[in-house]
Design a protein around this nucleic acid. Structure first.
Lengths: 165, 165
DNA sequence: ACTATTCTGTTCAATATTGAACATAAAGGA
DNA sequence: TCCTTTATGTTCAATATTGAACAGAATAGT
């Protein structure tokens, strides 16, 4: 009831606690990205590159498509970014003999070494800022976010179905 | 083989609960942005435009610089985006008579009307996904995030000082 | 009053990201 | 087998974002 009223009446949107609290989440995300970008500058890495490399550490041999899906970005984005990393000798793309369409991705030794250094930096930032929470809070935030992600993925699938119809 | 190497070199960064939980936060933010962008498409609005207009609803007459600071983006970003909104007749930029450097920003009636429609959409998404949390959780997430933001702003100021020195 | 410094907004080049259209490879159905 | 559909990666144009360098206006120190 309260929520429905708020949704209709314009002025009190900022006192909607869900709205207000989410704004804080978005702000935090934005600032983390900026801080990470700043600290990665000496390594000549941008955050999207790090995202890719982090995933390759865990999922060597993944295809570009699957990597894009994991990162929630478009395939074309991978097509743009991966050749850069390949030219720097950080990533290797090997054709899959079984399916000639797919390119399988691997970190080189150099890529792995750089990824390790970058991950240390990223973990340090996260560790620092998350020390503003108690372990219980941190866990609860994570749980809540995983449920929210699940809900958003539902919305996403629903939208895709509606669109294809 | 590959997995054993991982376990040795990196003592499982992925099991660091702070890291893991933050990943969920980042994923949620990313997906919200996408869902919002999709639902704003019919209004021909992008999320950065909405961010600007939302802030102008609350802070009419703000300067470009102050707006950029509120949004944690560069001044040049405002210089790029605002003329677009001005040409569409959604935003007005008036020179400040007291200080000839600054441009003060206002929503037009049309801009206000469009902002209202967009805000309803945004609030609906947030309301939907945050319904995956209890009110207590939602409040706790907000509190934790505000502390994290404060910590990140400290890091930011520290970095700026170090740089200027 | 004058100079140096700071502040506001702009320009510009570089990069990230997206969606649509495309080409090729694989899979499925008749 | 042949045709249709689906999947993977690429190309391309459009847009967002940034940081550095800049011009003009205001401020402070002298």
């Amino acid at each position: 009831m309260n929520e429905k009223q708020e949704a209709k009446t314009k002025p009190a949107m900022w006192e909607n606690s869900r709205f207000k609290n989410w704004v804080a989440v978005a702000r935090a995300c934005h600032l983390v990205q900026q801080e990470l970008a700043r600290q990665l500058r000496p390594l000549d890495l941008k955050t999207p590159h790090l995202d890719i490399m982090v995933n390759l550490v865990r999922s060597a041999g993944i295809s570009q498509q699957d990597l894009a899906r994991k990162l929630f970005v478009g395939r074309s984005n991978m097509t743009m970014l991966l050749p850069q990393l390949e030219k720097r000798g950080l990533v290797e793309r090997r054709a899959d003999p079984a399916d000639k369409r797919v390119l399988r991705l691997y970190l080189t030794a150099e890529g792995r070494a750089l990824a390790d250094r970058a991950i240390v930096i990223q973990a340090a930032i996260i560790d620092d800022m998350m020390s503003a929470t108690t372990p219980e809070e941190c866990e609860m935030v994570g749980d809540a976010m995983r449920r929210i992600v699940a809900r958003l993925l539902e919305m996403q699938s629903a939208a895709e179905e509606t669109e294809s119809e």
